[in-house]
Design a protein around this nucleic acid. Sequence first.
DNA 1: AGGCAGATGATACCAGGTCTCATCTGCGAG
DNA 2: CTCGCAGATGAGACCTGGTATCATCTGCCT
Lengths: 156, 156
Amino acid sequence: MDQTTRIVRAFEDAGYQTTPSRRLMAELVAGSRGHFSAADLQDRARQRRAKVGRATVFRALELLTSLRVVERLDLPNRSHAYVLCDPDEHHHHLVCSRCGRSVDVADGELARLVDEIGRRNGYRIETHRLELFGICPLCAGAGTGAAVAADREGPA
Amino acid sequence: MDQTTRIVRAFEDAGYQTTPSRRLMAELVAGSRGHFSAADLQDRARQRRAKVGRATVFRALELLTSLRVVERLDLPNRSHAYVLCDPDEHHHHLVCSRCGRSVDVADGELARLVDEIGRRNGYRIETHRLELFGICPLCAGAGTGAAVAADREGPA
DNA sequence: AGGCAGATGATACCAGGTCTCATCTGCGAG
DNA sequence: CTCGCAGATGAGACCTGGTATCATCTGCCT
């Protein structure tokens, strides 16, 4: 089962209708290399001569976020983006600041650390978020941003 | 030297002029309990019958951010806020999701963890950000949001 | 095959932030 | 002490990302 199907399935399993727009969103999200914004998706939809309303894109992203199929990132440059990720376990993101590719990172030892910080300060911790930014192996190898151009759409 | 003076001093040391608006911003920021937004500051300025342009507020916050006197938070509810914090060492924030009060948390063991994650994934990590959200001791004690009302202005 | 809950696109709106520009002022040189 | 100008300001236009409203359309269950 490929990524697109998995996403469509996620919609179905959660009781949402399968519509052309949603299928398209699923394809576009599945075909993204790095992170993407709502506007990216809409542009790419338009490139395929498909018309999707802005609201629909946001609605789809909202649903996918709630289904934990994508997650919203707050980038260091104060903009936002979404990334496709693993819905099954709590994790964080390691994001390439050049090409946007992101890998999921298990919480691991962090949980313990977070716990300890909470205890030391008397806070009851509810959630935490760790975001890591750096240069991915491909970009490091490629030198001056060669991987950037390859960012949009294509097999993972 | 009180907090306000410290902030004014930060402006001076960085070679910026000391103007009434900046002094006012310094006071308002220093007098904030939890986190605050640009709009909060402007409102509080207006309450004192001082007129500051929106742009000026943002400009001041931008400077203070670059001087690391304040930091920008991305709250879980997708809004933003600024918090006063320690300019002298790399740290993270533990933020009360009820009253917004924030304590600085030293990086500590996290650095090691981050390093390891980078190494394991072949990324050269440039920056990381950890944000913790929970209920602070005061709010936990006060029960239903009593501390919330006390949030704006007053001695730390 | 029919009906309706749920989905859609257009469009208006909102918040947070940036840009521009004409005016004003802190402050260092003299 | 005062003068001039770099730097700061406020007003307001604008931009981006996101939400709300609403009339219309359509997937899907019966």
